[in-house]
């Protein structure tokens, strides 16, 4: 371990960092793990395999998956349009992409619920013309999660599209490839890892999302009840073991997703290094 001898502040900054990290993050987070040791394994399995809990996990994962797929598709097009074309108002739209990061989730939640509820202006339109109800249905959860996911996809894909070496495109088209072939054989395979990362980030965020979802979801047990809401319900019923067991399961799944995302990003870096 070679230290730059001249640089001051090694001891104070490292010890403060570790101390503050332990106090604010590690100790609180570890309570969840230690609390769940108070449960025996059979209790844990009973809680987690309860029908309502299984249904909530199914709702959370399927809606997050659906939203991540839709957001990846449209997010890719948005990133493409923002990096490759020029049009009026481009800067405005570019800045607007980050709105879901900046707008508090509760605000997003009540607005989306107001738009898509059966009496809302889009909800009514969809109901009357297509007999489609989004608000207070699982589809409403998907809509809220799409909103949350947009910047994750666009902001992950955009820099890769921007730095894409156009000489590869030029080479392919001068060798006679059609525009579609250039896209499917050259551009898309190079963008794909980034798109997959954006997808995974959206999915991970969507599974844990609470504020934007609860207003539009309808929160019907077995149908449109998400896992975070079920944790809160258990808490309000003073069912600490229930809340702890479900939360621990969620946490482990999130960490596995995080691991996957890190591996993906490693892969992206390796690939772009080879270009």
């Amino acid at each position: 371990m070679s230290q730059s001898r001249i640089m001051p502040g090694f001891r104070p900054t490292v010890s403060f960092t570790v101390f503050y990290l332990s106090l604010v993050v590690l100790i609180p987070l570890s309570t969840l793990v230690f609390k769940s040791f108070e449960l025996n394994f059979d209790d844990y399995v009973n809680i987690i395999t309860h029908k309502r809990v299984v249904a909530a996990f199914r709702v959370s994962f399927t809606t997050a998956l659906g939203a991540a797929v839709i957001a990846s598709f449209f997010g890719f097009i948005v990133a493409w349009v923002l990096t490759r074309y020029s049009f009026a108002g481009k800067r405005f739209f570019h800045a607007l992409i980050d709105l879901p990061f900046a707008l508090p989730t509760a605000v997003a939640g009540i607005v989306l619920a107001t738009i898509f509820q059966p009496s809302g202006f889009l909800g009514k339109f969809l109901k009357e013309n297509f007999d489609l109800q989004i608000g207070f249905k699982p589809a409403g959860i998907v809509v809220a999660l799409i909103f949350i996911s947009i910047p994750f996809v666009v902001r992950t894909v955009e820099p890769v599209l921007q730095e894409f070496d156009s000489r590869m495109e030029e080479a392919a088209s001068s060798l006679g490839a059609t525009r579609w072939q250039v896209f499917t054989k050259i551009i898309f395979p190079n963008i794909f890892p980034a798109l997959l990362t954006g997808f995974a980030l959206s999915f991970a965020r969507g599974v844990g999302e609470y504020g934007s979802v609860i207003f539009i979801a309808g929160n019907l047990p077995y149908v449109s009840e998400i896992v975070p809401l079920l944790i809160i319900t258990k808490l309000e019923q003073y069912d600490m073991p229930g809340a702890t067991a479900i939360a621990l399961t969620m946490l482990v799944i999130s960490f596995l997703l995080l691991l996957l995302i890190n591996l993906l990003q490693h892969w992206v870096r390796k690939r772009s290094g080879q270009l």
Partner: peptide, 28 residues
């Protein structure tokens, strides 16, 4: 500014709250 053992772990741990559901962040 310094090299020390466990640095990468420290970086990962700092990012930890981003991957925890807000509801769980309150629950703890």
């Amino acid at each position: 500014r310094f090299e020390f053992r466990g640095k990468n772990l420290l970086i990962t741990l700092i990012d930890l709250p981003f991957s925890v559901s807000p509801v769980i962040s309150g629950l703890i």
